[in-house]
Design a protein around this nucleic acid. Sequence first.
DNA 1: TTATTCGGAAATTAAAAACA
DNA 2: GTTTTTAATTTCCGAATAAT
Length: 639
Amino acid sequence: MAPSRVRSACARCRRQKLKCDDTRPCQLCIRSDAECTDVINKRRRKNTRAQSQSRKPPENRPLLTETAPSHDPSPGLQTHVGPGGNHATDLVTSQRERAHSTFHHAQELFRNHMTTLRDSDAIPDGAPANKLPQVQGSRIPIFDIIGMQLPSTPVTLALLDAYLQANHWYLSMFHEPSFRARLVTILRTEARFSNHDTLHSLDSQFNLQQCKATWIKAVEDHIFWILKEATLESIACAVLMSIEYLLERKTQLSFTMSGLGSRAAQAMSLHDEATWEPLDFIEIQVRRRVWWSIYMVDVYIAQAYGKPSVLPTVQFNVCEPKDLDDTMATCPGIGSYEVREDGTFKPVTIFSYNRYKAQLYSIADPTAHSIRLPHIKRTYARLLDWEKTVPRELKLGSFSEDQSMIDDPARRVFSLQALTLQVSYDYKHLILFRPFLLSRKYLSVRLHDGPIESQDRSDTTIRDQLFTSALRMSSICRWQNILSILGNTTSAVQLCFQCFTAGVVLAMLALSELSSPRLSECKQGLARLIKSLEVAGSGSPLSRQSVDILMEAMHLISAEEVKELVSRAGKPAEDLRDVVSDSVTWSADSCGASDAQHAMQPDAVHGPGIWAELDLTPDESEPEILNSISLYQSLASLF
DNA sequence: TTATTCGGAAATTAAAAACA
DNA sequence: GTTTTTAATTTCCGAATAAT
């Protein structure tokens, strides 16, 4: 008898080698007023046998099989018992292709000599200086840290709820229960420092707009403090600020801020799980969540700007986040299963969206700043494959269009996710083929190599796909109910920009085939996109400006159409679907007229010589196509 | 007086080996 | 397939040490 041991000691008890208990928070943590967090016991599996059988090195793909066993680098005094066998393989596998810093080598140097490296914070990649906030007992008032007071407890909690509702389904960067627990602790201790009079006055006249400005100011004032030590919080902060700046028309800042976040993530080796020290299960999942958030933000913003992104240029090794207790909800009425990266089948939960989105992002990896046509075709094929894996819960078609208010909260989240996922998917197509938008010749390239008979859509051209994707994006207009809910969430910025992109693509396609029967579809699609932007944008500057530009584009199309009709009126009727073979492309035409600076890039890319060669050399010798045209540049050539 | 640190014994458990 | 063995990994005792 005497079952005196607990299944799992909490983090603190474990660290201090104390007797824990099964309650959470445990008695000892309660006594010392400490945070009581759980720890996952990952008993390491040993792979002694397969010494020569080194696992195949992972490709660029981040989707790996299992969590790599971590050999903890930081404490540096792990005793390596056992006859060297497995340790050697471990090192080989984990060291593979990674570039190492000088400091890392220094660590390896001392690794087997039981020496702890101290004071290395001045060395790049060195261990950060002793963390000051670790000091127990001495609590610092919130005001001293962030230069402002938190709103009263009910207001703060209400704000948290609002945030969770609006953003957590879309941008998941923490674990709700632990976050809430920490917040409550802070709020409780904070109550000691703030007098109740101010609390009451704050509560009654709480001004959201004013507070928002104050908060942003507070973050900006402390941004260096926040970034000084790279933590998950600093990355999350960078992500949120990046999005906020996008909303506030500070797009440059947004771009820079996401870069800061990306760098912070790299600084703490968030991109390689193998380097993480042993962490509890929740912490690991949260790290993965944050990693994928910053990764996706980085990729997205880079694509939107047409600039190289910070993160995907390095290989990374982070598994997809698993479900935690805050994301177990499933979609009522549908019960699909999701194939996880370890091959198991699990029910689709509200977190599945993030995994699918992560996969989508890593498919359309813009690692290659310059892309070759075969690569694009391969990426395209993978996109199509990905689409087939999407479960019904995340397909927009599963949700009715006129359901005035989506009753069930989980169902509501799924509908939002389905819509944004579909739009993101179609947007990926647009991004993928964006470099070809300005070339008539390339728009007619077929997307499927090989035998025609086997594939049903085998003669789809780039133009067709662009057209289809953009039109499908415009169809979201039918789900007005979902759109209007989306308008109040973080995803609105992204959605608006994606719609805008679709609009620009449609406009350019329309202008390039004024006499085609598709023209009217293009115009209708544009109209739907404008409508969607109005609904989902809820008056944000981004949506307003997008709407204006797209409106103008429609006028332009109409004007060009009229000109075209007039010019054709006198001539004998000819085949409407004329083959494009002029030496001077449409884009070069209009670029010549517009600003020289903007014209420079497309000209360099679409020089007639290069393009002529392209068709004939579909192999490795094919010239590279620069993928750095931002939407704005495409736009400049439109007018 | 109370809290923290830590060597190391004992307990636990996953994987490997032995057995049926 | 089940049981036993092995070895890695965890809990936490208890003595030393530090903080209050």
